[in-house]
Amino acid sequence: MSRSSTLHADARLEDLVGSKWQKPPFITSSLLRWSLTIGALVYFVVAISSLDVNWSRVSEGLDRGLQFFLGFVNPDFTSRAVDIKEGLIESVEMTIASTVVGIFISIPIGLGAARNIAPLPVYLVCRSIVAVSRALNEIIVAILLVAIFGFGPLAGFLTLSFATIGFLAKLLAEEIEDMDKVQAEAVRATGSRWTQWINYGVQPQIMPRLIGLSIYRLDINFRESAVLGLVGAGGIGATLNTAFDRYEFDTAAAILLIIIIVVMMLEYLSGIIRAKVQ
C-alpha cells in the first residue's frame, strides 16, 4: 500500500505531517468497494431503462392527476354517500372484530413462540404459524379466502385476523424473550404453577407493550381493510375501486380523506393510550 489508511501504533509525527489524510473507507477492501459501487450503478441504469415509461400516456394522464388533486380540494362526499357510509361501517366492523379475534389467538401463539418459556415442539409449531402468516401478503390471503368462502366481509375478517396473529405473536414472543429474567425467576422460585408464573412473572412485564401493539395493529387493520375490497373481501375498498373505475376522482378523494382522518385519529388515540400504559 502506498499510503496506509490505518495508522500503526508506532506512527511518528514527522512521517505524518505533510502527508495527506483521508477518511478510512467504509469497506476496507478496495476491490470489493469498487465492484459494489460499479455493480450498484450498472443495476441502477439497467433498472431505470427497463422502466419503459410511455411519456405520451403520462402527459395525457397528468390531466387526470390534476383532476384528482382538485378532487382533494373539493371532495364529493354526497353523491355516493350511501355507498361510502356502508363501506366505511363494514370496514370498521371488520377492523374491530378481526383485531379482537387476532389478539386472543395471538396471545397463546406468542407465548408458544417464545423460546424461554415454551418447550421446543410447541415453539417450532408456533414459529411456523407466525412465519406463514407474515410471509403471505394480506391481499393474496384475501384472494384465496374469497375464492374459498365467497365474496363479502367474512373473507376480509379472516384475512385480517390471520395477519394480526403473525404480527402480534411475533412481537409478543420477542418481548417475552427480552424480558427481565430475574423477575420471572423470582416468581418461579415461589413454587408457582406454569399458569401462575405466566400470570405473575411474565404478564405484568409484557402488558404495556401488548396494549400498545394491539392499538397499533388496530390502526394497521383499518388501513388494510380499505384495500381488501379491491379483491372482493368487503369494506370501503370496493367503493373506492368503483370510484376509480368510473373516474369519479372527487368521490375517491372523499374516501381517501376519510381514511386519512380516521388513521390520524387512531394514531392520536393510540399515542395517548400508549403514553398512559407505559
Binding site: T6, L7, H8, A9, D10, A11, L13, V17, W21, P24
Partner: peptide, 14 residues
Amino acid sequence: FRLLDRVGLLAMAD
C-alpha cells in the same frame, strides 16, 4: 496530527 501527537493519541487518529 501535531495536536494529536501533543495529547498522545496520534496512533488513534483513524
